[in-house]
């Protein structure tokens, strides 16, 4: 059993025996899953003490550092995949992070929530900021300072010279193919330098 809907999608893309870097790896669940499912190896990066301990308890390699400062200490193209699962929207300097992902990794995999999801649109029309199970915060306490729609993210990638290789759209864990920017609330992207 895996915790998050995007983990299975990520695991499908990670090649067997790949070397991965998981940015904002939390308690190490994804890395442990990738090790078991794909024999992937690598490291997680985390800032929170409790998560560092959880990773060490899971026997997952973890490096305590602040992602916002970039990935100094990691050599160019030293990973097959650099993963950022549901963390991008909480980061301050998105351009730097995406640049660093593609400096250090051959490919990047990121998961982002869709602010254009129809239920959120309705909440906005109703005059309130969206609050939902997958984005449960109030406007004043949210860590998610850079929310966007899928269309926004894809435009950003074009501007940044990032080529999207694959996109997997989901809604509450189920695959979505029709009207993704309206019906999907989560997407996983795989990309490389254009």
């Amino acid at each position: 059993m895996i915790a998050r809907a995007d983990f299975a999608a990520i695991a499908r893309w990670v090649e067997p025996n790949a070397k991965v870097l998981d940015l904002g790896c939390g308690d190490g669940t994804l890395l442990k899953y990738l090790k078991e499912a794909r024999n992937a190896h690598g490291y997680g990066i985390e800032i929170a003490d409790a998560n560092i301990l959880a990773c060490v308890e899971k026997n997952v390699n973890v490096i305590q550092m602040d992602l916002e400062a970039g990935l100094s200490g990691f050599e160019p193209q030293s990973f097959d995949f650099v993963i950022l699962s549901q963390t991008l929207q909480a980061m301050r300097n998105i351009e730097l992070v995406v640049k660093e992902i593609l400096r250090v990794g051959r490919q990047g995999i990121v998961t982002i929530p869709n602010f254009g999801y129809w239920r959120r649109r309705i909440q906005i029309i109703g005059g309130r900021m969206p609050v939902s199970k997958d984005l449960p915060y109030q406007w004043y306490d949210t860590p998610n300072i850079h929310l966007c729609t899928f269309v926004d993210f894809e435009a950003f990638c074009r501007d940044q010279g990032v080529r999207i290789l694959e996109r997997h759209v989901m809604c509450d864990g189920d695959d979505v193919s029709l009207l993704p920017n309206l019906l999907g609330n989560l997407a996983v992207y795989r990309f490389e330098k254009a």
Partner: peptide, 18 residues
């Protein structure tokens, strides 16, 4: 962190806590 960097460059298993 210098030690950690050297270990990363050598693909060694390492965890680092501050």
């Amino acid at each position: 962190r210098e030690i950690v960097k050297a270990l990363l460059d050598n693909d060694r298993r390492v965890s680092y806590a501050e």
